[in-house]
Design a protein around this nucleic acid. Structure first.
Lengths: 132, 132
DNA sequence: AAAGGTGCATACTTGTTTGTAGGTACGTGA
DNA sequence: TCACGTACCTACAAACAAGTATGCACCTTT
């Protein structure tokens, strides 16, 4: 009783399922998104993706690299200089993220309100009655 | 040293960040996606979202409801009959998910290959040398 | 009388993901 | 000579998300 069988050839239940497995991870979508924006050096990425730690950033970049989404280029210089670029596959994925991004921008205030309300009834689980 | 400050009014670093917080959760995107496909009764959803447990499905539905993405309607019948529909906000979010879905469908084979390779070098972490 | 289907709830446990705190190498500028 | 900046790595701990198991209420069918 582990997962979902679905398509026996690929192992995914649907296209969305496949995509989600690639972009799973707290920072991956943001990383991909900032990469199309032009931040490609490691340090620049780290500043762009606010709040990410070295460990996480590296880890996710490695996975994205292994997944064929980004390419790592090491200039073999001192001080170190490394940049990351989207592969064609990664670029197409980034494009697919754009609508999500726009949705968030368009509804940011609504979402912000919703979240502040959510916190309110998480703090005091009262008056959550009237269920059924 | 907790999160990212960013936009002090909303608390999000960007539109994508806002969206990601709404759809965070292993099953939420799939739930939203199947809801536009027309599976709206609880049982139907459960069959559509393969592998999800009752606990998870309910939990995520409750959160989506609290977030104004779905509406729960209880018909007060016996045996119980409940269905879930997307709010206008939820529907627009669902539309934004469509490109992700298509990306997954278009690249499903590539992604499947990538994942089988990933498993291979996770099993034997050899020859991962030549770093730097 | 027992089993099955509906839509949940709840406690408990597991497992994966994320964060923290250090450390590395090399060269530059103060 | 000491701190600084680059791009990382590693062990450890904490947090959180998810899974498992069980139970309920009601009715229909067998």
């Amino acid at each position: 009783m582990t997962a979902a069988p679905s398509d026996p050839a690929t192992g995914f239940t649907c296209g969305l399922d496949a995509t989600l497995r690639v972009i799973a991870g707290k920072w991956k979508p943001l990383i991909i998104y900032f990469l199309i924006q032009g931040s490609n050096r490691y340090g620049a990425l780290k500043r762009a993706v606010r709040g990410v730690s070295d460990k996480m950033l590296i880890q996710q970049l490695r996975e994205l690299e292994a997944d064929g989404i980004v390419t790592r280029r090491d200039y073999q210089e001192v001080p170190p200089r490394v940049d990351y670029t989207l592969t064609p596959l990664g670029h197409s994925l980034a494009q697919a993220l754009v609508p999500l991004c726009n949705w968030g921008s368009d509804n940011m205030e609504t979402v912000a309100e919703i979240f502040s309300e959510r916190e309110r009834w998480q703090a005091s689980p009262t008056a959550v009655a009237s269920r059924r």
